[in-house]
Simulated assay, not measured.
Amino acid sequence: MTNSRISTARWAVAVAVAAGAALVGVIGATVPAAATTPVPVTVPASVAASSVAVRAHGRVDPVALRGALAGLPDAYVRGAMVKVSGREGRWSGTAGEWTGPVDARFAVGSVTKVFTGAVALQLVGEGRLSLDDTVQELLPGLLPASYEPITVGQLLSHTSGLQKPECVRAGTPVEVVTSAVSCGSPTTPGKAVQYNGVNYFLAGLVVEKVTGRTYGEELRDRVLRPLGLRHTSLPADDWAWAEGGLVSTAPDLTRFMNALIRGVLLRPAEQRLLFTTPPVPGASFSYGGLTHTRLPGGGPLVWGKTGSNRGYASGVFATPDLDRVLVYSTLPTGQDADQELDRILRIARAAFQGHA
Rank of each mutant, 00 (worst) to 15 (best):
G197I: 07
P101L: 09
Q335E: 14
Y195H: 13
D132A: 14
R225Y: 08
Y76D: 15
R90I: 00
G25A: 07
S51R: 15
R105D: 06
V82L: 12
G216Y: 06
L331C: 08
S157D: 05
E175Q: 15
L139G: 00
L205G: 04
T306E: 10
K164H: 09
G282P: 10
Y76H: 14
R310K: 09
G161N: 09
R349G: 10
A269L: 11
P235F: 13
V152M: 07
S284G: 07
A95V: 06
G288Q: 02
H57Q: 12
M257Y: 05
R55F: 09
V177W: 00
A313G: 13
R346A: 15
R294N: 10
R169G: 02
S179I: 05
P101I: 06
L246S: 02
I347W: 02
F256V: 09
Y76I: 02
Y76E: 15
R10A: 15
Y195Q: 10
A48L: 05
P278E: 04
E217C: 00
R310M: 07
R78W: 02
G109D: 07
P62H: 13
T94N: 05
P268L: 11
Y76L: 04
F256N: 07
L131G: 04
P101R: 15
W91Y: 12
L162D: 03
R78I: 01
S50N: 12
Q163V: 08
T249F: 07
P279W: 03
A350T: 11
R128G: 10
V54G: 02
A9R: 13
S157Q: 03
R324H: 09
Y328G: 04
V17Q: 13
A313E: 04
V54P: 03
H355E: 05
T214A: 05
L69Q: 01
L326P: 03
L69N: 00
P62S: 12
V325Q: 06
H158K: 07
L301E: 13
A269D: 13
L142Q: 04
G86I: 05
G354L: 02
P144I: 08
A33R: 00
L139Y: 01
P144T: 07
E97M: 06
L123E: 15
S185I: 03
D238K: 08
S329F: 02
S308C: 02
T291L: 14
A242P: 01
V15P: 00
A259E: 06
A337D: 13
D133H: 13
K191Y: 05
L224C: 12
V31G: 00
L143H: 01
A95I: 08
E137L: 10
G96S: 08
V77S: 00
L155E: 00
N3D: 14
A356M: 09
W241K: 09
G304P: 01
Q271T: 11
S308Y: 00
G127I: 10
W91F: 15
T99C: 15
T254Q: 15
L246G: 09
V26F: 08
V84W: 07
K305A: 01
A12W: 10
T277Q: 03
R128N: 06
G109C: 11
T319P: 12
A75G: 11
R128D: 10
V174H: 05
P332G: 03
M257H: 09
T134K: 05
R5K: 14
R272Q: 14
P281E: 03
V47A: 12
